[in-house]
Amino acid sequence: MANPLVPGLLRDHLSELADRDERVDGRGQWDGRELTIEVNPLPNAEGSAKVTMGDTIVFVGIKFQIQTPYPDRPNQGGLMTSAELRPVAGRHYEPGPPSPESIEMGRVVDRGIRESGCLDVDALCIIPGEKAWQVIIDCFAISDDGNMFDAFALAAIVALKNAIVPAERFDVGEDYPLPISLMPIMCSYHKVGGRFVYDASREEEVGGDERIHITLGDDGHVHSLQKGLKGVFTAAEFDEIMTAARQRVSELQEIVNNL
């Protein structure tokens, strides 16, 4: 990814706005952009979702493969998450091997889902020690206007919840819906103009500093955290965004449940 030029005026303007408790697009500190979720738009994926947050657009598709379980966990299937930030999604992207940013994104999305236990890996076993399902979550960006982490994580859980295990195609029984019991949701906060805001746009990301990603599951359990980019934050700041995240996660869980 090419490092974008950060005009000094943008940073100044963002902090001027932050001092007045305002944001560059008029949102409140904890407001998200307009969100739409489309379920299973991609017929060749076993489950898929398209998430639009403002001008950010991503797809996630679920695919299944059969693999031999790891010797130390003969009764378990596997999960793999990859995020692709291809040049289709923005002027600043360049072709080439996966960037550190996209690898970080894939891994943070993966941890939130894996650690929440929403996917019962024991249920993915077909024949112990011989065959088990590997669930592959592919995150694919179409339009990057900021906060790809949350868009990917949300699309991933929606796609998983709507995925069908293609057992017939692999000759191992009948197709069945992938059991997803819990709902991990990621909320990301960027420091912009000296304070944290939710769901930063690309303009805010470019003119901002560090970011913190929080994945919460059911009953407020914390499943993954990640601090990214250069910057320092205080325990009090973290407290504040954790409170905001708890609120937002339950709103998003309700939205996903009502799809």
């Binding site: 090419a2 991609l42 060749n44 994926a45 898929s48 797809f59 598709g61 679920i62 695919k63 493969q65 990859s82 692709e84 291809r86 040049p87 289709v88 360049e94 072709p95 996966p98 592959i136 592919d138 694919f140 195609r169």
Partner: peptide, 30 residues
């Protein structure tokens, strides 16, 4: 960019066709 691909007399057209990993029945390795 990179500078070496540029041409003095015309633009270069940089075309990429790609299939997303979930675009096919069997997953396509990126």
């Amino acid at each position: 960019h990179p500078r070496k691909i540029s041409r003095q007399e015309r633009a270069v057209l940089d075309v990429r066709y790609n299939m997303a990993p979930f675009s096919t029945t069997d997953r396509m390795r990126p």
